[in-house]
Design a protein around this nucleic acid. Structure first.
Lengths: 290, 290
DNA sequence: GTCCATGCATGCGTTTTCGCACGCATGATA
DNA sequence: TATCATGCGTGCGAAAACGCATGCATGGAC
């Protein structure tokens, strides 16, 4: 009465994903293999771990219990892999970084370019993601993030402070220059309350023209002349077809950090990338501040 | 860059055992398989995990690091298996018990006999061991132990209190009866200091004739007339060729416990065995006390 | 009602893994 | 020095695991 550790890993994947297919995808095997492993595990334990439904595999109590423990095992496996990586002193092999899309487009591509030239043996993967990537579970080795602090269990290097300001198309900028008191239409981010306080302070008639849930789309909207957008300085300055408009005082914004799990932090590849980041942002820091 | 969980298990086994062969034995596979898995893991990590020496495999720092984490994973796997067992309500499948050799021979065999009759579908394994068996690591499901308390993380049922007394062959008993003041030779357990205090209180001339490190051998020595042996009442009474000799006051001894890991305790098979133990020892408790 | 997408079960041929037998190296022993 | 025990490496045939293709069941869209 014992169970294969890989079968436990498989059970965890199926509990997480809900179907054989998605679990198989995550595990990098065919879904029939997943089905067979589950069956084998059930036979080994003499217990049903899942109910077979048409919409997928639903875990039984016992399946959930097994998954909980498998999760613990996964954490230890992750810890091991992180520590191995942290003591890896070679500049070879895989390295995964993640960063916000816009920051990548406008700046990090240059850092990446240089890194690939300096360290051609590193297999660099770039994960352009706007949501937070789980560094503890090794979805990435190094993350470039815009936030107030690195977060718990993570180490961080503060790369650069930022300001935001208002940007719009040249056409709109001209109209504002001609009639500063006229009502100005804003494009705002979905989650924000409305027109920035700093803008209302200068023009009480500022109003929300539209709400977007995606920053890239907002930039496009600004370029197309839909309205004024508040955005980090580096975006406005780095995007063609946008000019800064003096409808609000530039205000401080969350700084840019390079963060990694403390285990991974000392690794050669992560250190090397960090060094290039530091140099780049030191050189270009004026682009990010008012 | 990821590692197979079963390979981690294999690494742990090799670190523990030192050679491929012994590790393979513990894992229940051929040693060539172990060698292959180690090689595969090293290739996956790009790091050497062991040095190949003629006397076996010696782990590198990285190998030890991996083994440490694998050990953590093993603990979680054990916890899972225990919990599954604890909620198993069937009276089928494997059950492993461990008990001191002598207790098995003289009494537990009857409990086992009855258990096998009542629950023929249980595959009962009996581990006759005098050293403590690790219940946390599932070397046994239920242990019958002679000790003051069950121990941490374990649940216990106090089966019976015990006394010890002095026993010897009839020949020696006759001599003692004839000359109670004569010097009496004792056989004592290796670790004890010498003749029991309670014996010296009655006869100052009692002396150690020999020291043994094994209780079975001491019983044989007593039967053969080598000397007086202090032993639990149930052994002296249950062994042919031995009689109690009044050279010491019977003294309290550690009680007999049925112990199991708290996770396993509620399992049907463990509960059933425990019930029989309780009944048996209640019925025969006078054999164990003075 | 038909069509399609999703997801599982099954059979078959292939790939991978495994166990076994043999050979080699090393160290202890007589 | 000859012999034996222990332990590892390697090649080959067997066994197990795997991927793929096909078929079935269910539920939603038109």
């Amino acid at each position: 009465m014992d169970i294969d550790w890989d079968d436990l890993k498989t059970i965890l994947a199926v509990v997480r994903e809900g179907t054989l297919g998605r679990a198989a995808q995550g595990l990098g095997v065919n879904y029939t293999t997943v089905a067979r492993r589950i069956t084998r595990a059930e036979e080994a334990l003499g217990q049903k771990l899942f109910e077979r439904l048409t919409e997928g595999y639903r875990p039984t109590d016992i399946g959930l219990l097994a998954a909980r423990h498998a999760e613990q095992m996964e954490q230890h496996q992750n810890a091991l892999m992180r520590q191995l990586q942290g003591r890896d002193e070679t500049l070879r092999g895989p390295l995964v970084i993640t960063a916000p899309q816009i920051l990548l487009n406008l700046h990090l591509v240059h850092v990446i370019d240089r890194f690939c030239t300096l360290h051609p043996e590193v297999d660099l993967s770039v994960n352009s993601a706007n949501d937070l990537v789980d560094l503890g579970r090794r979805r990435a080795d190094l993350a470039i993030r815009v936030s107030a602090n690195p977060g718990d269990a993570l180490k961080g290097l503060r790369l650069c402070d930022q300001h935001t300001a208002a940007f719009a198309s040249p056409e709109i900028a001209r109209r504002i220059a001609q009639a500063p008191e006229a009502a100005t239409g804003w494009i705002v981010y979905d989650q924000t309350k409305g027109v920035p306080e700093a803008a209302l302070a200068r023009n009480r008639r500022a109003f929300v023209r539209a709400r977007f849930d995606d920053m890239i789309a907002m930039i496009g909207a600004a370029q197309a002349g839909l309205g004024v957008v508040r955005m980090p300085m580096f975006i406005g300055r780095g995007t063609p077809g946008l000019v800064q408009v003096p409808v609000m005082e530039p205000s401080p914004y969350a700084p840019i950090w390079a963060v990694a799990h403390a285990d991974v932090w000392p690794g050669a590849k992560v250190s090397a990338f960090r060094a290039l980041l530091r140099a780049y942002f030191r050189e270009h820091r004026r682009v990010f501040a008012a």
